[in-house]
Nucleic acid binder design. Structure first.
Length: 277
DNA sequence: CCGCTGTCCTGCCAGC
DNA sequence: TGCTGGCAGGACAGCG
């Protein structure tokens, strides 16, 4: 599920039960998710308290009192669930098939990581290792930060021969967009996903209008998604402008177009061929 | 270096 | 109804 808005929502959910809390018990119900757990993973969490829980792109980062950082990624199907209180870990009534990790916190709360497809990950990074981390070190700017502006986008797209859609999915360009919000942002910006990324660039040293529109649209699409998901589990009733709306009329006022689905880099893209150029 | 393809894993749904 | 194939919101290795 998770792109930046869902990960941010997860962070907000975890914060009150993790921040300031100690790991009293850590249960790994299997030896791996996408990759094997680090040797000693549970032991390095045990007894530590969480000083802060942050988000970077689609990654959740929990800073521990030891200085380690617990790095978590939800993959395609990962989700956290919170049982208030110290429910016994072996309480089968509350455990599902794909509950892979259980954190019993001192809050008290029991945090369960469920991930059917097991594309998620949990890793520990030693103090000082964040910026040189293979993935985290290379992440692009936070899309909602001031650092992410038209000048940045134009710079990283310069010379890129790939499609604009593929560029937006590249976490080194901007961190946190996935297949849904890439399509949504492109529709807001009236830019075709098929456009070559390098066309969003600079002219006479200044970012082109397309770069400005795209940055504004990315921020707007993400803020809108974060904001409207305050209510619980609207997930499946979510309506997007273009994502998963093949055949629907274009939602842009005055546009007579119809949303189409195309495949780029083996992923679906949805857009309006009339108003997105 | 760059860009594209295949792959990891399970669940779900459309179509037969 | 039951089966099958295709597809899914991510990331990365490996290839040309």
């Amino acid at each position: 599920m998770p792109e930046l808005p869902e990960v941010e929502r997860t962070r907000l959910m975890l914060e009150p039960v993790m921040r300031g809390a100690r790991f009293e018990r850590v249960v790994l119900r299997r030896a791996d998710l996408r990759a094997p757990f680090l040797p000693g993973f549970a032991g390095r969490l045990l007894g530590q308290s969480v000083t802060e829980i942050e988000r970077r792109g689609k990654y959740l980062l929990a800073t521990l009192s030891s200085g380690d950082t617990l790095v978590m990624h939800l993959g395609m199907s990962g989700a956290f669930r919170i049982d208030p209180g110290k429910r016994a870990v072996k309480d089968e009534a509350h455990s599902n098939r794909h509950d892979h990790v259980v954190f019993q916190m001192s809050t008290p709360a029991t945090i369960v990581f469920n991930d059917p497809r097991r594309f998620g990950s949990m890793d520990l990074i030693a103090p000082g290792g964040l910026s040189t981390h293979r993935v985290l070190g290379g992440l692009g700017p936070e899309p909602l930060s001031r650092e992410f502006d038209a000048a940045h986008l134009a710079r990283v797209c310069r010379g890129k021969r790939t499609s604009l859609k593929a560029a937006l999915l590249d976490q080194r360009v901007v961190a946190g967009l996935g297949n849904i919000y890439a399509s949504e942002a492109l529709h807001r910006a009236r830019l075709s996903p098929k456009r070559r990324a390098s066309t969003v660039s600079t002219r006479d040293g200044a970012p082109r209008d397309s770069a400005v529109r795209l940055v504004t649209s990315i921020k707007a699409a993400l803020l809108y998604a974060i904001g409207r998901h305050d209510d619980i589990e609207t997930e499946r009733h979510r309506r997007f402008r273009v994502y998963d709306r093949e055949g629907a009329p274009c939602p842009r006022r005055g546009c007579r177009g119809t949303i189409v689905r195309i495949v780029q880099n083996a992923r679906s893209s949805f857009y309006c061929p009339v108003c997105q150029r």
